[in-house]
Design a protein around this nucleic acid. Sequence first.
DNA 1: ACCTGAACACCGTTCAAGT
DNA 2: ACCTGAACACCGTTCAAGT
Lengths: 230, 230
Amino acid sequence: MATRNPRSERRNQVLSRERIIETAIELLDAGGEAAMTTRALTERLSTGSGAIYYRVGSRDDLLDTATETLVTAALAAKPVQASAAPGDEIRSVALALFDAITEHPWLATRLTQQVVRKPFGPVTVGIFERIGCQVGALGVPQASWFDAASTLVHYILGAVSQNTRMEGDAPDGSHSRGEFLDETAAAWQNLNAEDYPFMHAIVVQVSTHDDREQFLTGLAVILDGLTRLG
Amino acid sequence: MATRNPRSERRNQVLSRERIIETAIELLDAGGEAAMTTRALTERLSTGSGAIYYRVGSRDDLLDTATETLVTAALAAKPVQASAAPGDEIRSVALALFDAITEHPWLATRLTQQVVRKPFGPVTVGIFERIGCQVGALGVPQASWFDAASTLVHYILGAVSQNTRMEGDAPDGSHSRGEFLDETAAAWQNLNAEDYPFMHAIVVQVSTHDDREQFLTGLAVILDGLTRLG
DNA sequence: ACCTGAACACCGTTCAAGT
DNA sequence: ACCTGAACACCGTTCAAGT
């Protein structure tokens, strides 16, 4: 008895690796990468900084682990459907990643970083395997399988990263999406039509398009191009 | 007279915005984003930290400005050729970006970040305009111009970011490209052929392919797909 | 084995003070 | 107008010490 601690809720459960990762994801979702500090973590978990290093290693390791957790979960949530057409299966994986980044914007940077730095880690391999297995069924000859899968992964991760909304970076409520578009409209005035004819030609499309639909349109273009690769 | 300073080369030129940006790029190229600190900058420029804030603002602003400088230069180095086919012009822009990131790996992260956070900044608009102006000539109907240009930009920036080599992140000489591939080969042993049939099918292609060639192959697939968008 | 938390060596940024 | 550099409020990481 007498182990009470008046000003912090007692941990009724031993500190686990899972709980650290889960808390890290919460912080990342709420405030972006800058908000996930050792001190913020230790405060939420009411523990010491050493405990985190003991369980998950450095901050960078924790970021990688969190990314791995979410990507693996996103892929697992949409299991392979043997009956689906190859295009549908690829679309399903693409949308799973699109939605994961929508929910966790900080994933955009980290996902690309893992592909670059850990080309044979579970994230990169997981995505490649799921997509690659379909290119044969798409009619791509085996000699071009790696090229085809790479093209798809490059596009999907590129599109998904570039469609990130970055509200998490502005912790004060200063930037609603609406204000952002207003500032954007103002910036347009500085682009004269002679220097930027294309931008002026598509300005209406920019303000009325849907990111997700456009993402799928692009994917369809690539799938179409791939079927002619033979 | 008598303004000599014995232990640091005297500035024979007043501190300029350009010199700060140039020095920042040198630091970034040599050691990645982590190496470009205020203190490293002030030491190289033998000045105080306030001077940098006076000229270029925050570290984040400096990173953006450096990115802007390099991307603008890369695009300007390959001027529009009126005689070229639309595919050639797009390829030219794509390769300019590919080469810029090869020379400055830290650009990968920053380029995507600018597209996300400054969709109407000079970097995003510059790339979009150069690529977008060609899609009409490619045979894409006007209603699909924005979709077509987006697809190209998503792919190009995605591929170019994912092809980054990250030697700058390891300041010690611990990771040659060769050692990296060796470690990679070891990691392969952990992937059994039943769980990862696709990865096993393409392992030879992975080790023999050329990034730049593969990048162009993917681009050709997309250009082909776009011509059928009508 | 697992956790604590003070200590260390850094950061970016600000700002009174100088010229 | 332009620059200095001490000071401030943070970081990530380590490690002796505790249980």
